[in-house]
Design a protein around this nucleic acid. Structure first.
Length: 518
RNA sequence: GGCGGCGUAGCUCAGUCGGCAGAGCAGGGGACUCAUAAGCCCCGGGUCACUGGUUCGAGUCCAGUCGCCGCCA
């Protein structure tokens, strides 16, 4: 009935503990999910964890644990962080879950059946000390020696299954050319296209079980285990109950596929922009509408590193959220840098952003508006008269926001939306200074005019808060409560339009939304 | 080495079809007071990296140079 909307984050590898990069992707996805929910779309938002692989197996062994045990522990760090950051995911998939593993086997089975997979030979570099495969580019970068032990890498060859990636490449190129939105931003799209045009080889999708003991066994060959690509990438559909395998999840959420947008970091673009769509084409499934690769964060001007002490871990995020709030952290990440570009996180920049945009801008506007309505209209939103020229600038800023918000979000232009939100708050602050309601209040003859002005202010702040809501859910709600504008959930088509605030609505002063930081 | 992108005010960046260089922040000054000493108003000659070209006119188009970055080899 309603229009489905499906957004995904990558599944995060449990070898790593969560940091700002994970938080960034997931917050962005959450904002998309919240926005489109409020717009009345039927939203599904998926995140999860990638739990197979040699690294996990070894890390667990070192700690004397079973891989699954280790994963169970690490996954909690992610779950807890998502909870702390107000992430509203509808599902959380782990690659070690039966619903996923069984579907991975089915996917492989289908690929074999369609002759999309054949037994070939894997050749590559292997680090014997680390018991890890090393890609050609990494090997070259390290002069064909182990990055850890310095020992020579060994040339390794073993039978393995290959996916006919090359066969699908021309079709993919065509698709990318015809669908500019498929890979975003454009610079990334160009990179993928030019690399594709240089030609691609088939993709090795299995490893021998003895080398990769922790993974999904190939259904057609007990000596082989599914390598990361098919295992991890397929989570986006297995979580929806695709394909059918005869369990209770079959087709459960199949209506959400294809995904509207799949958010990823730029480091995993190639896999998502090439391997994944080709696998889908081979399975005769539609490819996602958009794969959006965002940038990376540096911290205090330098690459994040634990030794430099600028690493933004889950603990540091918790500190920042404690100093400000979760919502402010979310706001900062999305406001400071255009989604897709790299950004730098700095405490000083955060403080300035906070004071400038939020405390002095939105927060102060709400405070002065509510205060005047309380003082001059007994705390009830006044009836507006006919708007005049003074109202034009505010109305224009509001129109600009309401008319472009959905498209900005659709294209993941979070900073643009926030920019327009701030522009409306700024226009309204200027409006108060130019119309001087606090002076008109002294003149009983100006009662109607005063009402128009304060209604205009209240309505403008309300819109500011409504459009801030997907990014700052809890804070926006507190602000809306002060305006008496909470009520039962109504679609954005109503709440997001000028005039939804009913005259007579009681307002009340509350705590500062954003107390100024010194 | 190949392909692509970028280089604009102290900082971060906008500049669509070529038509008198912009915003935010920071900094300086001012008038006010509803408000979180917040808000508002005023103050920006910056070789638009460099060189050459096309054009009546180039930040914008073309060629080259330098620097930075990305992808690939």
């Amino acid at each position: 009935m309603t229009d489905p909307y499906y957004v995904t984050t990558p599944i995060y590898y449990v070898n790593d503990v969560p940091h700002i990069g994970h938080a960034y992707t997931t917050i962005a996805a959450d904002v998309l999910a919240r926005f489109f929910r409020s717009a009345g779309r039927d939203v599904r938002f998926l995140t999860g964890t990638d739990e197979h692989g040699v690294k996990i197996f070894k890390a667990a062994a070192e700690k004397g644990k079973q891989p699954r045990e280790l994963a169970d522990e690490v996954v909690e760090h992610f779950r807890r962080l998502w909870k702390e950051l107000e992430i509203s995911n509808d599902d959380f998939i782990r690659t070690t879950e039966p619903r996923h593993e069984a579907r991975v086997r089915e996917i492989v089975r289908r690929l074999v059946e369609r002759d999309e997979i054949y037994l070939g030979k894997y050749e590559g570099w292997y680090d014997e000390g680390q018991e890890e495969f090393v890609t050609e580019s990494t090997a070259r970068a390290n002069d064909y020696k182990s990055a850890i032990s310095g020992r020579d890498l060994v040339r390794y060859s073993e039978p393995s299954y290959h996916f006919r990636l090359g066969k699908w490449a021309p079709k993919l190129i065509e698709h990318i050319e015809n669908n500019p939105r498929f890979i975003q931003p454009d610079a990334r799209r160009n990179e993928v296209l030019s690399k594709l045009r240089q030609g691609v080889e088939d993709l090795c999708i299995s490893r021998q079980k003895q080398k990769l003991p922790w993974g999904v066994q190939m259904p057609n060959d007990p000596d082989h285990v599914v390598y990361v690509w098919v295992d991890a990438l397929s989570n986006y559909i297995t979580a929806l109950g695709i394909p059918d395998i005869g369990d209770e999840h079959d087709g459960e959420h199949a209506k959400y596929w294809p995904a509207d947008v799949q958010l990823i970091g730029k480091d995993i673009l190639w896999f998502h922009a090439v391997y994944w769509p080709c696998l889908l084409m081979a399975l005769d499934l539609p490819v996602p509408n958009c794969v959006f690769a965002h940038g990376w964060w540096t911290s205090e001007g330098r690459k994040m590193s634990k030794s430099l002490g600028n690493f933004i871990s889950r603990e540091v995020i918790a500190e920042i959220c404690g100093d400000y709030s979760v919502d402010v952290f979310r706001y900062y990440l999305l406001r400071t840098v255009a989604f897709g570009a790299d950004g730098d996180f700095s405490h000083e920049d955060l403080r300035q952003r906070y004071n400038g945009d939020l405390a002095n801008g939105v927060g102060n506007l709400l405070a002065r508006t509510v205060n005047m309505i309380v003082s001059y209209f007994d705390g009830k939103v006044p009836e507006p008269g006919e708007p005049g020229v003074d109202e034009r600038e505010v109305a224009g800023a509001a129109e600009d926001l309401t008319s472009s918000a959905e498209q900005a979000i659709e294209l993941c232009r979070f900073h643009l939306l926030l920019d327009k939100v701030n522009a409306l708050a700024d226009a309204t602050n200027r409006y108060i200074d130019s119309t001087q309601p606090f002076k008109l209040a002294k003149d009983p003859e100006q009662r109607e005019r005063l009402g128009t002005i304060l209604y205009t202010c209240a309505e403008a702040v309300r819109l500011v808060l409504v459009y801030l809501q997907p990014v700052m859910p809890a804070t926006a709600r507190r602000g809306l409560e002060q305006l008496g504008a909470t009520g039962p959930d109504r679609p954005l088509a109503e709440t997001g339009a000028w005039g939804a605030l009913a005259p007579g609505t009681p307002v009340h002063k509350g705590e500062s939304l954003f107390p100024r930081k010194t």
